[in-house]
Nucleic acid binder design. Structure first.
Lengths: 173, 173
DNA sequence: ACCGGACCTTGCGGATTTCGCAGATGTGGT
DNA sequence: ACCACATCTGCGAAATCCGCAAGGTCCGGT
């Protein structure tokens, strides 16, 4: 039979009851974690190779991956460096709102230039990341479109000077 | 022969000289953009299917994708929802620095809990996103590790209440 | 006008991967 | 004990990947 992790597999599986002690919706066991880890290194890695690495058959890996995708636990996608794709201006915008915060957040979500929207506790109600082609574009989005939303009390912008880190390695620790 | 886009293909390719008017380092033409778009929808989509969609042969798509990966223009990876993977506390931290900003940014980059680091213009010198398992963990990272860095003058935290949008759709517009 | 380079196409096998299904195996509920 | 359910394994069959070779076209340089 194949390799390293195999011996302890059946035990590991039973562990899934324990792992499910995370509060997340569809509980993840150690094996699924390992699979995700593999796919975080290379989203196109073949199922057989993953199976060998985590101690599962090719078919089993396939089923797990499919379920993880169906459940929305993960997705396999191409991610790009905004700079090389022609977006030269980015900014984080802190927003303060009067009235319904969530409806403002929804409005931001509908803007294609807005890459990231999160409601927060602290001196901002919402943080939104904006990706634009140039300064004009950025100015337009912030001043004409965001500030124009009814209920937006104030905004503060943090223009990106240099992106130092950007990982997609959740669950890898 | 195959299908829709074929007729206008040779013309499209010649357009690539125009598209290269973006300032990005390794200029991207419209076809590569379209390929990226396909892989943003499904990172495992077969080359033949992509070729049909963008009007290229399977072999050509294969070569392009390989080059895009080699050049670091894009990567194909699994991305997960932090919540379901067991990280229940996230925050954005604004940091003010005295002295060398970049060395502080580098120090943050080395922390595994720090998912995102960017140097900014505005009332913060650095923004860092932190992903933690629970409140204790978050508190530890912010108070014990970040504030402990020599040169960090002050920090302000924005704990995430609700993530509303998170896309990886750059270049898709 | 000519050549070289970059890129695409078509075509082709062979190795690899994907995919569906049937047959274990283990677990929990009644 | 027995059944329902979930999961894993083990296959072939089909599809995909991958390298390679032989052109073709367009462009820029000399």
């Amino acid at each position: 039979m194949h390799s390293e992790v195999v011996a302890s597999r059946s035990a590991d599986q039973r562990d899934s009851s324990r792992e499910s002690r995370n509060g997340g919706s569809p509980q993840l066991d150690a094996v699924s974690l390992a699979i995700i880890q593999q796919l975080q290194e290379d989203g196109r890695r073949p199922y057989a190779a993953i199976g060998k690495a985590v101690g599962l058959s090719e078919a089993a890996v396939r089923q797990r991956v499919q379920k993880l995708l169906d459940q929305g636990v993960m997705q396999i996608v191409a991610v790009t460096d905004p700079l090389t794709v022609g977006f030269r201006r980015q900014a984080m915008v802190g927003i303060n709102v009067e009235g319904d915060v969530e409806s403002i957040a929804d409005a931001l979500t509908d803007m294609s230039e807005v890459e990231y929207v999160v409601m927060t506790a602290g001196s901002f109600d919402i943080l939104a990341e904006i990706v634009c082609e140039d300064d004009d574009h950025l100015l337009d989005v912030i001043n004409k479109r965001i500030r124009a939303l009814p209920g937006v009390r104030s905004t503060e912008s943090f223009v990106y000077l240099k992106l130092k880190k950007q990982t997609y390695m959740w669950g890898t620790r």
